[in-house]
């Protein structure tokens, strides 16, 4: 599993911090906009530390049972099946809960005893209480940009984590990332990043979302694969950002300035 280490370009001290947190058994919270590399960072760190990684993409129907596990039916009887969190606790793996605020409220109940110094996971259905191995690590992420009154990370939960803020990388770094991910030449990568930064200025005023590094990588991949640049930008950079056709046309005018 840890054979291929996914590429990750460090922006600050996040790698070192993560290593320290891992050594001292501290849970980590990653926050940042969508598509800026949070998931990639965790994959990279898991490979670097040589631990298996269990990633759970949280959604609004994800319950505690989905994390902890449930009974399954077998040959005339039932047996217990560990959920991803339980498996990580038993194996001393890294468990990564992506967009944790999306999950149902009952999940916080199991996260609390795991994220403080008790590091235990009580499994109600089997009556077991697991003590996490020293290598177990809990990592959660969320996007604070979505302003939702009814959902949001409770301060009492947030305070249990060491927090790391992510943002889109600086232009030179981002260009390097795009080039590395897609094998496009540096000039095109720089051009795409400049375009993305032009579009990011529009956030909140004209657009609700910023162009993410992920979208840039998609665009570069299409271009690298021989797709025409303008059409690639439209498909992978402009259309994903807005549904309003007038805004799309306006953004395309901006794109044309960069790819005339």
């Amino acid at each position: 599993m840890a054979l291929i280490m996914p590429h990750y370009q460090e922006q600050g001290q996040e790698v070192t911090l993560f290593e320290h947190a891992f050594r001292r058994q501290l849970p980590v919270l990653l926050k940042g906009p969508t598509g800026c590399g949070k998931t990639r960072f965790v994959e990279h760190m898991a490979a670097k530390l040589g631990r298996p990684l269990y990633t759970v993409a949280c959604h609004d129907d994800l319950s505690a049972a989905d994390l902890v596990g449930r009974h399954l039916i077998g040959d005339g009887e039932t047996y217990w099946n560990d959920g991803p969190l339980t498996r990580a606790v038993r194996e001393g793996a890294i468990c990564y809960l992506d967009e944790v605020v999306e999950a149902r409220k009952d999940t916080t109940v199991i996260l609390h005893p795991l994220s403080d110094n008790r590091r235990i996971l009580p499994i109600e259905r089997t009556g077991e209480t697991l003590h996490a191995l020293p290598e177990f690590m809990l990592v959660v992420s969320y996007n604070p940009g979505y302003q939702n009154l009814l959902k949001g990370m409770k301060p009492s939960t947030r305070q249990r984590f060491v927090a790391l803020r992510f943002d889109y990388p600086k232009p030179e770094l981002e260009a390097r990332i795009v080039a590395q991910e897609t094998c496009v030449d540096d000039k095109l990568a720089t051009q795409l990043v400049a375009l993305a930064n032009a579009l990011r200025v529009l956030k909140e005023h004209d657009l609700e979302e910023s162009a993410s590094t992920r979208l840039l990588v998609y665009t570069a991949t299409l271009i690298q694969d021989g797709f025409e640049p303008l059409a690639a930008c439209r498909a992978a950079l402009v259309e994903p950002l807005t549904d309003d056709s007038e805004t799309v046309e306006a953004l395309m005018e901006v794109v044309k300035t960069f790819f005339a």
Binding site: N197, A198, L199, V201, L202, K203, E204, H205, D206, T247, A250, L251, E253, V254, T257
Partner: peptide, 11 residues
């Protein structure tokens, strides 16, 4: 407006 803000970098 969008072209102006995007190209000038001033929102």
């Amino acid at each position: 407006g969008i072209v102006l803000r995007a190209l000038s970098g001033d929102a």
